[in-house]
């Protein structure tokens, strides 16, 4: 282990996008039994860039939702490169509602370059679909665990990541937008992406340090056993809370993400008229 080379943030971006990495269906195969995919948003169509359904985890029914990317060009076109349209977010919300109704925990796998920026997606209310997914996930009355398994980019990633417990694989990235997009906005030059990665703070270690994620999962041979162990521990821990306690704790967890992690009293000490 000591000789393992540390990847730079930009190398992690490239790792996160590698098509040879496990995809959502491999995670489902390795970690759950008897997965049954459930399709469609009941409004317009089935967005295949999101997979959702029910499976057994150590014998317990759970709802699994995640982004799907292709392994080759043909598949990538079929799954729209993992870029989700409003219909995909609405399918996710439908499955979350179903999970809550029947008391099933929700496990999500996040791996997306972002929500789809397209004509039809905009016409069908992309903003609204993402906002509804974030809001719904924030108040679900069942345990929720999210794992960033590749690139978690922008609101499209957050829509599946407002969870009680948020984990990242050690070499993956979670960011406000792609480093290329960041560089082109900031410096009008997408080629400066590697430089952008250094200042964006998008690696698992940095985000854990900020308190924005709860834990890091090792990759390589240990990946699946570690995920299995983590899910089991987290679902056992979270399963002890009532539905309303889960929602209240989750609200407080995200409420604290105020950027004052090292100086928590900076605002509270100031004169103000609220309260």
């Amino acid at each position: 282990m000591g000789t393992k080379k540390q990847l730079t943030p930009y190398e992690k971006v490239l790792t996160a996008r590698d098509v040879k990495r496990p995809g959502i269906m491999e995670y489902i195969d390795m970690l759950f039994d008897d997965f049954m995919e459930l399709h469609g948003d009941r409004l317009y169509r089935d967005d295949t860039s999101i997979v959702g359904g029910i499976a057994l985890f150590h014998g317990m029914p759970v709802t699994v939702i995640g982004n799907r990317k292709g392994k080759n060009t043909e598949e990538n076109i079929q799954y729209n490169f993992g870029m989700t349209s409003p219909e995909g977010f609405r399918k996710a919300v439908r499955l979350m509602n179903q999970a809550e109704k029947f008391g099933r925990p929700v496990i999500t796998f996040v791996d997306t370059p972002g929500a789809y920026p397209g004509l039809e997606a905009e016409s069908n209310g992309q903003s609204n679909a993402i906002a509804e997914s974030i809001a719904r996930m924030s108040c679900l009355k069942v345990p929720t665990v999210a794992v960033i398994t590749g690139e978690g980019s922008s609101g499209g990633a957050l829509a599946l990541a407002v969870a009680d417990s948020v984990w990242m694989l050690e070499n993956e990235v979670y960011s406000i937008l792609s480093p290329e997009g960041f560089a082109s906005i900031l410096w009008k030059d997408a080629k400066r992406a590697p430089e952008a990665c250094e200042i964006m703070k998008i690696t698992a270690e940095e985000l854990k340090e900020f308190g924005l994620i709860d834990g890091i999962i090792p990759e390589g041979k240990k990946l699946f056993p570690a995920l299995d162990k983590m899910f089991l521990a987290e679902l056992t821990r979270l399963g002890k809370f009532s539905g309303s306690a889960l929602a209240a704790n989750r609200y407080q967890k995200f409420r604290r993400m105020d950027g004052l992690y090292k100086n928590t009293s900076a605002w509270d000490g100031k004169a103000r008229i609220s309260n």
Binding site: I134, L158, Y174, I176, F182, I185, L207, F210, L212, F254
Partner: peptide, 19 residues
């Protein structure tokens, strides 16, 4: 942009609060 993932988390905070 200058606040990175903290900025993304404000989407969760504000959506949860108004919800």
């Amino acid at each position: 942009m200058q606040e990175g993932l903290f900025s993304l988390m404000q989407m969760a905070k504000t959506a949860a609060a108004v919800d």
